[in-house]
């Protein structure tokens, strides 16, 4: 597998949120506004790439029986380092993303990629995998967030941390608040997964007919 194919698989075919159903807790919890999706997605991508590279580099010296505690130590060290450096040198960005960073530690996508991929593959492949999975998850979050934000509040691209109220598409009175509450998250996610499966199945049958 080349760098490109390792990268590409995370975007659609093995998309962590829609195909592998990994990291459902943060996916449902934060997909309320597009700005959340971008913030969480980028922060997680950064940690995913870093932890994948380090775990891949250590794979030959990691004893199999204690690999899981070692992964946890590596991931937690990485997340804390990112948190501290961001707080010190990029305070504005940290203000916006700060709330997502503790959530990254409990994101099972990072752990799953360490266990299923990085611990068995080379550094370059692991880097491509981390980048692809991270960006695939970011895109999934943005798609889910866009639908929920629009239906739930009637606005798009609101960024409360910058005091930007977003672009109003329709009035608050018409908005269905349920879309940004937990049930709306499950329903939207379910419909999106169904839609993606429908599209892939159609393509598959078409290809078979040809």
């Amino acid at each position: 597998m080349s760098f490109k194919s390792e990268f590409n698989k995370g975007i659609i075919n093995e998309n962590p949120a829609f195909r592998m159903l990994l990291g459902m807790c943060p996916t449902l919890a934060i997909s309320l506004a597009i700005s959340n999706g971008i913030g969480m997605g980028l922060a997680a991508t950064f940690v995913l790439v870093g932890s994948n590279v380090i775990i891949s580099a250590l794979r030959k010296v990691t004893p199999g029986r204690i690999r899981i505690p070692i992964f946890i130590v590596v991931i937690a060290t990485f997340v804390t380092t990112v948190d501290l450096i961001m707080a010190a040198f990029l305070p504005d960005l940290h203000e916006v993303l700060g709330i997502f960073i503790p959530l990254i530690v409990v994101n099972c996508i990072i752990f799953a990629r360490a266990e299923a991929f990085a611990s068995q593959r080379g550094i370059i492949d692991s880097l491509a995998d981390g980048l692809g999975m991270g960006i695939g998850w970011t895109l999934a979050l943005c798609g889910l967030s866009a639908i929920r934000e629009l239906l739930g509040t009637g606005t798009l691209l609101a960024i409360p941390d910058f005091g930007f109220a977003g672009i109003r598409i329709f009035s608050q009175g018409l908005a269905a608040v349920m879309a940004i509450l937990p049930p709306g998250g499950f329903i939207t996610l379910g419909l999106l997964i169904g839609l993606l499966n429908l599209i892939t199945n159609r393509r598959k049958t078409k290809r078979q007919q040809v």
């Binding site: 934060i30 309320l32 506004a33 959340n36 409360p160």
Partner: peptide
């Protein structure tokens, strides 16, 4: 540390 998008 409120929920992003709701409590935040």
């Amino acid at each position: 540390a409120e929920t992003p998008g709701l409590g935040s």
